[in-house]
Design a protein around this nucleic acid. Structure first.
Lengths: 110, 110
DNA sequence: GCGATCTTTCCATATTTATAGAAATAAGAA
DNA sequence: TTCTTATTTCTATAAATATGGAAAGATCGC
């Protein structure tokens, strides 16, 4: 996962309203929810909701399909899994770096 | 992990400069780096660096210890692991919720 | 087409976050 | 104590993000 992609996903989830929206969509997997229902559940005015849905969509965390007058939003849980992988592997996991002077070096193993 | 704690950690990492700082500290685990060295590596003015270090510290992602005139910062990789766990488990993992009408229901298993 | 419903975009405004120079604080050295 | 180095806090400012009313765009039923 690209660093910039990860930052966008992190930023998208680093906001209470959006995290709540996303969790609601995860809860209603795999059917998803129409925008109006989300706004009803979380008591959000249309414009505010739409703004946050857009952020989540741009970050690749949700997608939408039209069903008549409604837009059904669904969570892309795979994107979250990739983000978790990024945090653990590409980004921030424990590793022995240049300045390491740890006493439990395994440099003469195998 | 609390939702608010997770949001603070997500917000802390959702910013390029801070993510870079954190990654540098992970790379220099477990010794860490003095603030000045971080600023030198990432070419950041003191005040800007200090601002971001503070954000990361408040989010529980790094900590500091004094060594003479220097403050040595170290990454708290465990916090990132907990954040990754939160994303996978408490928050956003695939699950069958209230509205689920999936055709691969296991309701009459076992 | 017209009205009703669902949702988005437009817009103004409020709030939060980032940037960085300058002054202040902390600690060791002379 | 005074100087030097390392870092933070103060302060102002710029930039990005969030909020929500009002208008506009889609879609359906009549």
């Amino acid at each position: 996962m690209e660093k910039t992609t990860a930052i966008e996903a992190l930023a998208a989830l680093a906001q209470e309203t959006r995290l709540d929206i996303f969790r609601a969509l995860v809860e209603y997997q795999p059917d998803g929810l129409p925008a109006g229902k989300i706004g009803e559940l979380l008591k959000l005015p249309g414009a505010t909701l739409s703004f946050h849905l857009n952020q989540l969509k741009h970050a690749g965390l949700i997608q939408s399909t039209r069903d008549g007058r409604s837009l059904i939003y669904t969570a892309n849980t795979e994107a979250v899994d990739l983000l978790a992988d990024f945090l653990r592997e590409d980004c921030c996991s424990k590793s022995v770096g240049p300045a390491a002077s740890n006493s439990t070096s395994f440099s003469n193993m195998g």
